[in-house]
């Protein structure tokens, strides 16, 4: 099986779409000769030309809104929002418009724009370039929120995004672009709303998405060394959300923690935890643990920044503290 990087997976899905569907075009800041701030669209301007690879001024509202408008006109635009932090500048277009066009027109219109963006901290980029804001968008009916953790899922989920009539926020984590993984040569897609079991285990369930899946897997390794087998579930999409896979795991393990990089207060883990207690109350041997980012603007100093983002040690420590597992980091 071919091994590709997470970045190559995104590029491949985009290339396939550009090759197979003339309605597809890409629009955003520095996506042309520069190749995109995270080098995802490298070489595309030369290959597809300026008509389909469109460089825009630094103006998130209009290029996201124009993407929504072009989608309403029947095209399939992919807009690249350089990072999810800047999506805030286009939030009116995403939340008030792209997500609601269908409902507000009584089902007459679709705004199936794909909004690719880059999330997460850990690169020393401080408070306004390091946030994980996917939970904000997952709160909104009418938009799909996709958070791949592996090259396999990045390719499969982005292919799937092109089949959707609704807007998709496709959130790529900045720190895993070089992550390598196997992808089958034959065509496949990953359906939205289907979580993956990244590791099997019977003692505790760790629910995560995006880069935190890898943190959960590292924590699972530390736990395994102490005789505790963790099951790791990768949600893959926050909306639609596959809770059934989570419930099945919790009914088996009776212990669960949700790990995310977003701020803990009001984060998506709160939603997951709430649904778990509603559906699995009688199966739980302890509280549902939430392990999230510290409630602080991300600091620049590397030691401080590291202290804000959950790592495997923190996951293990929280399992001991909140659920009472006899483990140490």
């Amino acid at each position: 099986m071919p091994v590709i990087t997470y970045r190559e997976a995104v590029t491949q899905a985009l290339t396939e779409a550009l090759d197979s569907d003339e309605r597809v075009f890409i629009m955003g800041e520095d996506v042309g000769g520069y190749g995109g701030s995270y080098a995802v669209t490298k070489g595309m301007l030369a290959k597809y030309g300026p008509k389909r690879i469109r460089e825009t001024p630094i103006a998130e509202s209009v290029f996201v809104g124009a993407g929504a408008g072009a989608a309403m006109a029947g095209l399939k635009p992919v807009v690249e929002i350089m990072t999810i932090n800047f999506s805030i500048l286009a939030m009116d277009q995403i939340v008030n418009h792209a997500a609601k066009v269908r409902y507000m027109s009584g089902g007459q219109l679709s705004s199936g724009v794909i909004m690719r963006t880059v999330t997460g901290g850990g690169a020393g980029l401080a408070a306004t370039h390091s946030q994980s804001l996917e939970p904000w968008y997952a709160h909104v009916p009418g938009i799909w929120v996709v958070t791949p953790a592996t090259p396999y899922d990045a390719l499969g989920l982005l292919r799937e995004a092109f089949t959707k009539d609704d807007p998709v926020l496709f959130s790529e984590h900045a720190l895993i672009y070089r992550l390598r993984g196997e992808v089958p040569e034959e065509h496949y897609t990953v359906p939205f709303g289907q979580a993956a079991i990244s590791r099997r285990g019977s003692d505790v369930t760790l629910v995560a998405y995006s880069r935190m899946v890898h943190v959960a897997l590292d924590a699972a390794q530390m736990l395994a060394n102490q005789g505790v087998e963790a099951e790791v579930i990768d949600l893959r999409t926050l909306r639609p959300l596959d809770m059934e896979t989570v419930f099945q795991s919790v009914r088996k393990t009776n212990r669960v923690a949700v790990v995310e990089e977003a701020w803990r207060t009001g984060g998506f883990a709160a939603e997951i935890a709430s649904q778990i207690q509603e559906a699995c109350f009688d199966y739980l041997d302890g509280p549902v643990a939430r392990i999230g980012g510290e409630d602080v603007p991300q600091p620049y100093a590397i030691n401080l920044e590291r202290a804000t983002i959950p790592d495997a040690k923190k996951v293990v420590n929280e399992l001991a503290k909140v659920i009472g597992l006899k483990v140490t980091a």
Partner: peptide
């Protein structure tokens, strides 16, 4: 005709996107 939203001026970007689609086609 469309007038989807009553967030003042938001639709101006959609008109631009519509015109862009027209040009691309």
């Amino acid at each position: 005709v469309m007038n989807l939203s009553n967030v003042v001026a938001a639709h101006v970007t959609h008109a631009v996107g519509w015109a862009l689609a027209s040009k691309l086609r």
